[in-house]
């Protein structure tokens, strides 16, 4: 999985490419630990994310809990497969998905 970060004054955009699963989620978790300290909004661009498993969802949930107290977090450009996962897991009710 590729993790591409773009930062401006208001937010950090994290573009994810490939699969976010048990193999790749630890890398994202490590990246996010540094980013969530900055207290900016985090935007996850999921246009090129092919799949997200429970390991990936756990990382997003963890980031969501931290960012809810600071700058907030949102998810953009989810494809149909990823959106289906958000819906059947109920994460669409928890996360801010645009």
């Amino acid at each position: 999985m590729k993790i591409i970060k773009m930062q401006n004054a208001a937010a950090v955009t994290v573009a994810l490419e490939g699969r976010l699963d048990s193999m790749t989620a630890p890398a994202l978790e490590t990246e996010l630990k540094a980013l969530t300290d900055g207290a900016l909004e985090i935007v996850f661009d999921m246009e090129k994310l092919e799949y997200i498993s429970s390991a990936g969802l756990r990382v997003l949930l963890s980031a969501h809990k931290v960012m809810a107290k600071t700058g907030g977090m949102k998810i953009i450009h989810s494809n149909e497969t990823v959106m289906d996962i958000f819906e059947i897991t109920g994460f669409s009710d928890i996360l801010n998905i645009e």
Partner: peptide, 20 residues
């Protein structure tokens, strides 16, 4: 530990799913 971690990840997601 890898299999154990998979069960923990699933449990986090299933808390919400099983309420549906």
């Amino acid at each position: 530990r890898d299999l154990h971690r998979l069960t923990k990840d699933s449990a986090v997601v299933l808390q919400k799913m099983l309420e549906s």
